[in-house]
């Protein structure tokens, strides 16, 4: 079985898991987004077909919620918190530093697909502001000059 086929089997499994649940479509998309890092056109079409909902409804949902990405993402997802506490404590400076370091803007992915840079409105670590989260790890009380060494930890 080639890779593409295998993926399709997996996708169907995910869809079937939530099929019986009322309103399960968002859960389906979440799991696919988690597993594959993004929602491909094929995946969205399959979800629409299997759940018997109009494709536009699936596409609407996929573009409405920020948790979903329609483009492949980098191996490491960097979320810069821009909640109020982080904002007050200079979170946007950390974002600018990351943008300069990585040569991409928020919402973009580096060419070699290593990092995706995003902003998030509060991850609830306000006491440690300014905070960023790389994959599962949160880093608090940041300063611009600490950014390069943190990036080195996630290669």
């Amino acid at each position: 079985m080639n890779d593409k086929m295998k993926r399709k089997v997996d996708l169907e499994k995910v869809i079937n898991k939530y099929k019986a649940e009322k309103g399960g479509i968002i859960s389906v998309l979440q799991e696919i987004n988690r597993e594959y890092g993004y929602l491909s056109e094929d995946a969205l079409k399959l979800v629409a077909k299997k759940l018997d909902v109009p494709l536009i409804q699936v596409y609407s949902i996929a573009t409405f919620y920020t948790a979903f990405s329609l483009k492949p993402r980098g191996r490491h997802l960097i979320n810069v918190c821009l909640g109020t506490a982080c904002f007050v404590k200079g979170g946007n400076r950390i974002l600018e530093k990351l943008e300069r370091e990585l040569g991409i803007k928020a919402g973009e992915t580096t060419k070699e697909l290593r990092y995706s840079l995003d902003t998030v409105h509060c991850i609830g670590c306000c006491s440690l502001a300014p905070v960023i989260r790389i994959d599962e790890d949160a880093y608090g009380r940041l300063k611009q000059e600490k950014v390069p060494e943190i990036l080195k930890k996630h290669k």
Partner: peptide, 11 residues
Amino acid sequence: EGDPGAYMDRS
């Protein structure tokens, strides 16, 4: 809990 700066619900 969407208000930025509030995280007691999470806690």
